[in-house]
Design a binder for these strands. Structure first.
Lengths: 334, 334
DNA sequence: ACATCAATAACAATCGATTGCAATAAAAAA
DNA sequence: TTTTTTATTGCAATCGATTGTTATTGATGT
């Protein structure tokens, strides 16, 4: 059996022109049903796959969506962070469903033009950026001229780029309120507010504390996002001898896990001595000891929103940012 | 400023032919240093990026490596599994370093031809498959005709495909031996031996038990790989009323985490009542309470091996499978 | 001043598929 | 039977870059 690689091969076998083959395989009405069936049969028989590169060159699309993870405010942060990974998996599923490939790229914004470089490379039809990190300005600048770009993260007034995320202020508020309701009057917030989303969560906390007349009782520890790095931060904090908080609002589930461990090593019971609540609602919360309370974001829905809006932007539509409702999930740690 | 998209635009600006531009930007010696510099300057000035699609079509390469995750023996398994994610991140780094993109695809082998379909799609220059699952036969069949394919996973006699992984038998042996040394005489193995690697780990356990004259004291619970699914398996097992094991060898760190939690809920102390050891050496082991002992595989090195060997296979070289040494990491759970 | 040779750059084919337009054949209308 | 219409298919340009071959230029030698 001759190996059939191109439509030209098929054309010869069928005794027609390449154009006809192309149309036939595309199911064009211009080609008679009979010829179409015959060509299709030949293609099937030889397991023919059209060359995607050539197709894309002609069509002027790549069929791939880039997923970028900017590691701005935290260069040590690893792509293996459970949150990224969860989101990545969901995006992979959603994109595959829509017939797009997922091009993964980890980016450390060393200079101002990291996003431009990717946008202009022409390797993808659109871009999903996971997390604004501290790069909101860059995102806004690029979004101004490059349409097919959506971002997972927070939303702020005057934001140019299109984002999908949960209401971080409300989430932070809910978390703090919950701990206050549990009787905590001194809280600590673990997380670095330089990142947009985390800053917003902190604002929410502050608001809840203020409402309870406890404004002065909130301390902030700008812990690292990565578990390995967060742990010593937290251990130091506990050792520092300040007044011990009765509740800890962690900016992410991963940080909360580190806190759980540090507290355990410190001989403090959760939730007996200290209440702990995380943020994100990752699957891993179910596996901690004790099981972690958290403010949950619906990442599945978020991923679908991201993909849906990106495709609409690719199609030329305009889209508004989406802010989803965060949800309190109470488990054993609070 | 006219927008410059193609080498043709640049050619006009420089007053030369497209061929000259192409060679100049490639740094060819065929073009005089002066012209080269002039063209390069123009390209820089306009931030010109050559069209990768066209380039690849001509060069006959795609510049992308596919990473496949077959979810064979466990359809519910999610791509967000910490092990996959860790490996994925490491691969992304290693591939980026070598100038390749990473095309992610999650695959549920519904039929026999899942791998063929991807191979023949021509979207990638090579393929890395993470985990053999129960698809060794498929992998062998395809590896026979498709060279640029490497697999993370176990190695067995007569294996056709090229794999990178740790010595699972030895790893299982080490784990069981460690618990036996700790004084356990009844062990349980948590994990489904249908997956190649897990089966090998179980074999290692059996060997260690046999050497200690405890062959009859090993029970096997084919727990799910996913944490959410594994937990009820384990809880049921503990409730079943059989003789309680003194030590648990988990086939993965994730399963071990579920075990820790189930044991805690059951009121059993670790390592006081039951010793637990995991497998993989993920970062998350450090964050559990108590910190998890494990058999560690050097995933960073593994990822580099995978990429290195794949590139060599793409270049036409032949490569042998790599079996790395697993390492016992003793923490607080054993 | 003329032939020789090297250096440089232009020309044109090529990668594989898509698609507007022209051409042919068959069917319908006159 | 001749003309018009319609249904199919072929032809060739195109996407943007790469590269083997050919042509031009200038320098060198005699």
């Amino acid at each position: 059996m001759v190996k059939v690689r191109t439509i030209k091969d098929i054309a010869e076998l069928a005794g027609v022109s390449t154009g006809t083959v192309s149309r036939a395989l595309a199911g064009s009405e211009l080609i008679s049903k009979k010829t179409r069936a015959r060509i299709q049969a030949i293609a099937d028989e030889h397991g023919f796959k059209p060359n995607i590169l050539a197709r894309n060159l002609r069509i002027q699309r790549t069929g791939a969506i880039g997923v970028l993870i900017p590691l701005g405010h935290e260069t040590g942060q690893h792509i293996s962070d459970p949150f990224f990974i969860t989101m990545l998996g969901l995006l992979a599923d959603a994109l595959t469903e829509k017939g797009y490939d997922l091009l993964l790229s980890r980016v450390i914004p060393t200079d101002e033009r990291w996003l431009e470089r990717f946008v202009d490379s022409g390797r993808v039809d659109g871009l999903i950026v996971i997390g604004q990190s501290d790069q909101s300005a860059t995102l806004d600048r690029v979004a101004d001229r490059y349409r097919p770009l959506v971002v997972w993260g927070g939303h702020y007034d005057g934001q140019v780029h299109c984002s999908v995320g949960s209401d971080n202020r409300k989430g932070g508020y809910i978390a703090a309120k919950h701990l206050i309701d549990r009787g905590c009057s001194r809280l600590a917030f673990f997380g670095d507010p330089k990142a947009l989303e985390i800053g917003q969560r902190l604002e929410g906390c502050r608001l809840a504390m203020a409402e309870a007349g406890l404004s002065d009782n909130l301390s902030v520890l700008p812990a690292h996002l990565v578990a390995e790095a967060a742990h010593p931060d937290i251990a130091n904090y506990l050792n520092s001898g300040g007044e011990r908080p009765q509740g800890i609002v962690a900016a992410s589930d991963v940080i909360a896990m580190s806190a759980l461990r540090a507290l355990s090593e410190f001989g403090l019971a959760v939730p007996g001595d200290v209440h702990v609540i995380g943020y994100d609602g990752l699957a891993i919360c179910e596996q901690t000891v004790p099981r972690l309370s958290t403010v949950s974001q619906d990442l599945t829905q978020g991923a679908h929103h991201l993909v849906d809006m990106l495709l609409r932007r690719i199609a030329g539509e305009d889209t508004q940012s989406v802010v989803m409702e965060p949800q309190l999930v109470v488990r054993m740690s609070s």
